[in-house]
């Protein structure tokens, strides 16, 4: 059986006054039904643009190319704009970091939820209302019936994010893409929302692509992880594998940066990654991390492929596993 979402060699280019910007440079991954893939990386690594490229929601001047981009058996590359618009919301849904900007302040919650179903499915207003109620309860909103007549500004940030999730679920999508869905929320609410996303994914058998910068979230929710740096996936594998034995120097650096109680002594200096992300404008060659890498060698000037081992753990680095683990 083919994967739910298959992405091969996804490239996004954006022409700028200063030259061509290459924010996404050949990203390949796939997501199965009921699976959670986390794309993790820092700002500017291309993770959000990758998500927008999947949804065909890129800014107009951006150019998207890919060798393959399919949602089950639908070819997203060949789809016309109106077909894509039909797919969005019905078979693939996206939730954003700031729910307020994605909800229309002029309509009630109920109206926006129902509209979602009425637009994509043959359903009556009453059926849509029933489904909206069902889903609001599902996402843990109490007194759901009274919420239907409320406006977005009357809800707290956590509730709005729940409404966004309910809205994304209205048509029972096969794939849900969540771009930093909890970054704007408090830790207690964050835990609740993530718990909910995990439950819903299992219950509805959705594929979930979660984009985040937070390794804590990745560790707790991901089945598989893709670490992005400068527009490329530099490490890819099962969450357990990647956290047990991070292999790419960038992944290792990133993990050393976060204070983990019990692992790093209180008040002792944290690890850091010196230097800055390279400019993604113009032509590039070689390993994009080499300018910040302590293991840099001459071979790093050449293009480096993402090499997968028998366990499915892939790294874009010339170092062997033993070399990396021995060094740190």
């Amino acid at each position: 059986m083919s994967a739910l979402l298959e992405v091969r060699d996804l490239v996004v280019d954006i022409p700028l006054a200063a030259g061509m910007l290459h924010p996404v440079r050949g990203v390949t991954f796939s997501v199965e039904r009921g699976e959670t893939l986390c794309i993790v990386g820092e700002s500017g690594c291309g993770k959000s643009l990758t998500a927008l490229a999947l949804m065909a929601l890129l800014p107009r001047r951006a150019k998207r190319t890919a060798a393959k981009l399919t949602l089950s058996d639908t070819d997203l590359l060949a789809a016309r704009d109106d077909e894509l618009a039909d797919l969005r919301g019905s078979r693939m849904a996206m939730i954003f970091q700031e729910p307020m900007t994605s909800l229309n302040p002029a309509y009630t919650i109920g109206n926006q939820l129902e509209e979602m179903l009425l637009r994509h499915r043959r359903a009556t207003r009453a059926e849509a209302r029933e489904r909206a109620l069902f889903l609001l309860e599902k996402v843990g909103i109490t007194a759901a019936a009274s919420r239907l007549s409320q406006y977005p500004h009357q809800l707290s940030g956590g509730l709005r994010q729940r409404v966004m999730i309910a809205m994304a679920l209205m048509c029972g999508p096969d794939l849900m893409i969540a771009d930093e869905p909890t970054t704007a929320l408090d830790v207690t609410i964050q835990a609740q929302i993530l718990l909910l996303l995990g439950q819903l994914r299992r219950e509805f058998g959705m594929g979930l692509v979660l984009i985040t910068h937070d390794l804590g979230i990745v560790a707790r929710i991901a089945d598989r992880v893709a670490v992005m740096y400068a527009g490329q996936i530099v490490e890819h594998g099962s969450a357990a594998e990647v956290f047990r034995e991070p292999r790419h120097p960038y992944t290792r650096g990133l993990m050393a940066c976060i204070p983990v109680p019990g692992k790093v002594a209180r008040g002792s200096p944290l690890g850091s990654i010196p230097g800055m992300v390279p400019s993604l404008i113009g032509s590039m060659s070689g390993c994009s991390f080499r300018s910040r890498c302590e293991f840099r060698r001459d071979q790093c000037e050449a293009e480096i492929a993402l090499v997968e081992d028998a366990t499915g753990h892939a790294t874009r680095c010339i170092l062997s596993v033993d070399e990396v683990t021995a060094a740190t």
């Binding site: 954006i14 700028l16 200063a18 910007l21 924010p23 700002s43 500017g44 291309g46 959000s48 643009l49 927008l52 949804m55 929601l57 890129l58 800014p59 951006a62 969005r88 996206m94 954003f96 970091q97 700031e98 900007t101 994605s102 771009d179 800055m276 992300v277 400019s279 993604l280 404008i281």
Partner: peptide
């Protein structure tokens, strides 16, 4: 869905800043 563009341009800005 309009904020998709916002996210994208923020990313572009980040990379562009070095040349600002």
């Amino acid at each position: 869905m309009a904020d998709g563009i916002g996210i994208a341009s923020a990313t572009v800005d980040d990379v562009e800043r070095a040349l600002t």
